[in-house]
Computed example of a mutant assay.
Amino acid sequence: MLVAGAWLGGWAWDEVASALREAGHEADAVTLSGLAERRDTPAGLRTHVKDVVDHVERHGLTDVVLVGHSYSGVPVGQAAELIGDRLRRVVFVDANVPVDGESFLDGFPSDHIRQALAASGGAWPPLPPAGYAGQDLTDEQIGRIVTEGTPHPGATLTEPAVLGRPLGELPATYVKCLMDGRDPAPSVAGLLKSDRWDLAEMETGHWPMFSRPRELARLLAEAAGEG
């Protein structure tokens, strides 16, 4: 089950989902409330957690590998503990991770995002094309992200996460995209000390579903096999 980061909908996973299906896996790409075709639906962080949990329960999914990219690692990490024994593994793709009592914006220097939210009436606009430079993306891929991306609902970035147990207790894989910084964030580095967490690396930028979709699909399939 694939959940993209800020500004993106399920469409961002088209090539990854196709590669997974070709390899014999089921693949569901989910669009969170307030984004893409659901852009008119009000959303906060709890809404996004509920989006993920409801999709799993509504479709009767079991043995689920939850995949969260970038921002969506925050709701996906919370949803992972809520779906209980339906979860097989959670995979964070160059993602933020939830910290109990902290928001997405609390986890790193974010004054520029807070300023963007204030200037745009509470939504985080997609980056301009220059913001994607040096991330292993073609001009065509950048154009698609900029054109099809939608402003990200600000409340999802400012509401605190809620965890019922330590995140390190979940079976997890963290995929670090090395062109976006070679070292995981301190919050992730701490979690990687858990014997239930594994680290995988990709020599690409922050949006590997566009830059290296087949390589990412192989990593996700391998993570699913770890159980």
Rank of each mutant, 00 (worst) to 15 (best):
G24S: 04
G134W: 03
V52K: 01
P98C: 11
V3K: 01
V52A: 04
Y174F: 11
F210I: 11
S120P: 13
R114I: 14
P153L: 01
T204C: 10
A189L: 13
G101N: 08
A17S: 12
V3D: 00
Y132E: 02
A118N: 13
E226T: 15
G24I: 03
D180Y: 00
S103C: 09
D40C: 08
L20N: 08
A223G: 02
G44V: 03
D195K: 11
A6M: 05
T138E: 03
V74E: 00
P171Y: 11
G68W: 00
R89C: 08
R196G: 10
V56L: 05
P75Q: 06
L157Y: 02
D51F: 12
W207C: 12
L178I: 10
E26G: 13
I113F: 14
W207E: 12
V74Q: 00
D63C: 04
P128C: 09
L45Y: 03
F108E: 11
R196V: 07
G227A: 15
E57D: 14
P184S: 06
Y132K: 08
V99Q: 06
A79E: 01
D63H: 05
V76N: 04
V56Q: 04
P166W: 01
L192P: 04
V53R: 01
L191E: 01
E226G: 14
N96P: 15
G227P: 14
M209F: 08
R88I: 02
T204G: 05
R144I: 14
H152G: 08
L127V: 14
L192R: 00
A185C: 13
D136A: 03
P208Q: 03
S110Q: 09
S18M: 14
A189G: 07
D139A: 13
S18D: 15
V74N: 00
M1F: 12
S120L: 05
R182K: 14
L191I: 02
W124M: 13
E226Q: 15
V49R: 00
P98G: 05
D195V: 06
P98R: 08
L61R: 09
K193D: 15
V91Y: 02
T47K: 07
G121A: 08
L216V: 10
S18V: 15
H69N: 12
D139H: 03
H206R: 09
V76P: 10
V76L: 08
P128V: 09
G131L: 01
L117W: 06
E37P: 13
E203C: 15
V67T: 09
G205T: 05
L191W: 04
Y132G: 05
L137E: 01
H152Y: 05
G68K: 00
E37W: 09
D51H: 08
L127I: 09
A217R: 09
D85K: 13
L170Y: 02
A23M: 07
V52I: 15
V93A: 00
L8H: 15
V91M: 03
V175Q: 00
E148W: 14
A19E: 06
K193A: 12
G168K: 08
W11R: 09
L45E: 07
R39E: 12
L117N: 07
T31I: 07
L66I: 06
D14F: 12
G5C: 03
